[in-house]
Design a protein around this nucleic acid. Sequence first.
RNA 1: CGGGGUGUAGCGCAGUUGGUAGCGCGCUGCGUUCGGGACGCAGAAGCCGCGAGUUCGAGUCUCGCCACUCCGACCA
Length: 577
Amino acid sequence: MKMSKMHIRTLREVPNEAEIPSHILLLRTGMIRKLVSGVYGFMPLGWRSLRKIENIVREEMDATGAQEILMSAVQPAELWQESGRWFAYGPELWRLKDRNGRDFCLGPTHEEIFTDIIRNDVSSYRQLPMNLYQIQTKYRDEARPRFGLMRSREFIMKDAYSFDRDYEGLDVSYKTMYDAYDRIFTRCGLTFRPVEADTGAIGGSNSHEFTAISEVGESEIAYCPKCSMAANVERADCRDAEPTPDSVEMLPVEEVHTPDTKTIEDLAAFLGVKTEETIKALLFVKYDEMGNEDGYVAAFVRGDRELNMIKLVNALGIPEHAIAFADEVAMGAKTGAVGGFTGPVGLHDCTVVVDSELPGLKNLVAGACRKDYHLKNVNYGRDYKGDIVKDIKVLKEGDPCPVCGEPVKHARGIEVGQVFKLGTKYSESMGATYKDENQEEKPIVMGCYGIGVTRTLAAVVEQHHDKDGIIWPVAVAPYHVIITLMKPDDEVQLALAEKIHDELSAKGVEVMLDDRDERPGVKFKDADLLGIPVRITVGRMAPEGKVEYKLRRDAEKVEMTAEEAVKAAAALVEAER
RNA sequence: CGGGGUGUAGCGCAGUUGGUAGCGCGCUGCGUUCGGGACGCAGAAGCCGCGAGUUCGAGUCUCGCCACUCCGACCA
């Protein structure tokens, strides 16, 4: 393809809306174009790379026996009401009405639609297992879109849904998808890590997310340098502190005057105790489906711990958007809580959630539910108890690995894919059943599997760039080779460049020929910015049939004949495409 | 949703005490250049985010709204 005929527009300067490398480079190369916040279009080069990723996904999905279909993005509210997610999905669900006032949404994911298809089409165990997928535009009305393709409101996703007779079948389907994801992200050139993950609004029992390692990623993962434990921090189990030995006596509760000790640090310093010897309170208000207040929650963790919101809402069995920090005064009036001085003793009329390690710890300091006072020697069972006792704390860097005890490490990453064992959550609520050999009606056991295709594109750029531009892996590069033609009006040079172009094209190599009437510097800068893996420069050595051959990822430039360059480029592309 | 910032030519930006808008890049034409973002000359291009208000006069002052963006809340 001649570059003089292509719609390419590179930017010399950094657009002021972009902060991170992938966003900056995708805009500077002109591969994407923003329409409004969180909504992007794809220009020719961007679309080519995106299609490369799509096709890798498609090839690997097809290889597992999954079948591609395409469902509509517009979905009727009824299906979501049936599954219970019209409320549970929250404000991120992009809702709309038709002219008659009927409710619809733009699909953020398609569990309901696929379950609906299957409940109509499948009635016998003979039809299972089955896996259907689509590559389609999804919508999520993000509270705060950012970082270009990383978190957008409209994006392309591959979503697959597996349907099995039983949980053993689901395990097989899940493993098949997990392995396919491994191959997909490897082929895309990503450095990634599968980690255990929370199931969030999708639901189900079990989940892994595939995280492309990156400083700018929004996922925080914890992993063990010694064993195989790796999990999203939201999901990571914590090892409880060692219980206080039996030999330690429970001391009598003692109220102490502790003015101006609103924070745990103040309190510990004031009393001369460690933060580990205190209890921290966090107060929340719940909301019902109508958005009305629906009771208060007090969560307690050891003073030095951090509360894990995801674990808390999972313990409560409510969606995350149905809870918010409570107004201390309003909550205090009903429950006895006192801002900065709330403890588990003396609280009433609220759900008390106690972190799992607190019952084992004796003689702790906690708020007295009285301004400027704390209680010493508070003990679980004798002085307070929890309505729910569960691990609700954050696994912090350096904390012991829940599996082997080694101090864990943290890393950041971009979630490019996630797989879920849904079980019968949707098949039961929506009545998707089959008949087994014994005429028994049973719910279909489901799994679902997503890949953020547009986000994967951003992740690839995030991991493959330098100060001059993108460095595309061959497999997802918009073109494989760029021929940088120094003087397009020099007949010898032009003829040689076209010969190379035609020979490479004949071998199936994708070539762009920079025949633009630009100065060499501009062409070199653009070639680097665009990140085409192989650059063949046709210039002053053209009369001898020689060219310069350079890989974007290497600094080395090699002089060779045009024939050698064609052979080298074709071999590289063959090996890495 | 809370807090901050910014809206002026396609992009990046300047615009003084209020007096009718400028710079760089890009774009068009001509010429000179031509292996790492050249130079000269001549041009085109702006509802100054939108709407009210103050004023003889508003890019500039006041109020309201909208959009974009950053931090947080939230979210996969």
